[in-house]
Write a protein that binds this DNA or RNA. Sequence first.
DNA 1: CGTTAATTTGAGACCATTCAATTTCGGTGG
DNA 2: CCACCGAAATTGAATGGTCTCAAATTAACG
Lengths: 211, 211
Amino acid sequence: MPFTRKRFGKDAYMVREGERTTDCSVILRGFAFRQKMLRDGSRQIISIHIPTEFVDLQNGLLLVADHNVQCINGAEAATIPREALLSLAIERPEVLRAIWIDTLIDASVFREWVVNVGRRDSRARIAHLLCELALRLRSIGLVHDDRFDFPLTQEQLADATGLTAVHTNRTLQSLRKDGLIQLTGRSLTVLDWDRLCEVAEFDELYLHHSV
Amino acid sequence: MPFTRKRFGKDAYMVREGERTTDCSVILRGFAFRQKMLRDGSRQIISIHIPTEFVDLQNGLLLVADHNVQCINGAEAATIPREALLSLAIERPEVLRAIWIDTLIDASVFREWVVNVGRRDSRARIAHLLCELALRLRSIGLVHDDRFDFPLTQEQLADATGLTAVHTNRTLQSLRKDGLIQLTGRSLTVLDWDRLCEVAEFDELYLHHSV
DNA sequence: CGTTAATTTGAGACCATTCAATTTCGGTGG
DNA sequence: CCACCGAAATTGAATGGTCTCAAATTAACG
């Protein structure tokens, strides 16, 4: 399948809202997130994406991007022209199936994020985001001894959880004080997985890892 | 295509979280919504669905439901066995394309809801939900003179916007006082579409109606 | 009509925000 | 290697939007 390898610098945009879409990208290295900006300058991060994941599969059929995709500390991606992906999907049903499942799981994650920002308090919100990220990173082998790379700044974490940076800071301190996590620099260690899940009311069903 | 016509009573569950899925349903009459319950009894409504829409297309490939689907004031749906839908999709690429687009737009709506509950204040949240619903209802001809059927109770509206019922009530009053909407019984009239959109910071791009 | 569900109102408390200042950290050049 | 710099993290204090709880009013329904 034809693809182009692309490098993105720190905080670079991979897709911009309103742009006509032409291709889909898989992250090869680094992290990215989807986000929307509001007029007052505030930002909502909608999902975080890790290597091996598509960040914009919807570009396969939707002609205009409805949100931004931004990478975090520089990333590398494989960009595939829309037509190449579509024709492969039509030729090989198992590819189509995989793509569709990916889309469906994406949607499931979005639903859980609605619940997260809509109904959980600040501790649970942040804990939930960490649980999700830990599990997804584990599935691609990027967690070692309950420790993984956590590239988000506290401001970005705030934008992902619908909180302010200040309150995110205080909430993280609260989680640390309780011995749930350790967060230094860009490295996060889950000290007590069970209690973290408990605080987050985390149920991994929505990730559909078994499918 | 084989399907069963099903009737659902007031507040009846069409799909339950954790259940093994077997089929997909299209709403023929009435409204439904997707929701998740938290342990403390609080509920987050994730999306609202109107006639002609699939409520659980993800059941085509995901084997376990990750959320509940509940109808509002009684509804009627056409239930299609998973296999029938899948084999039709494989036979006829244009059907598959339509199904995939539907899934993608669904996901786009979820993303916008994340933004809504994550970053907008109570007035904007409710206004935004109303704008979205009005536009979608208009596209199937259910809006007349800027008036449409609004079946949600204030408690359900609260669960959809991540607010409490009390605060939803006060916010609705505020929108009424400003002459933006009229809401009596189960009938909603948009009195000033432009200003309502303004309050909501509504941009219909994410609905992808042109695709 | 009677009964329950839904809406409305009031008052007080609290979680999260805002704004501003300070400290720490990571990177860069002298 | 250290001084410097900007970004990120942290702290404090005051404000405010939303919540909680409880009661009263209105609407819906058999």
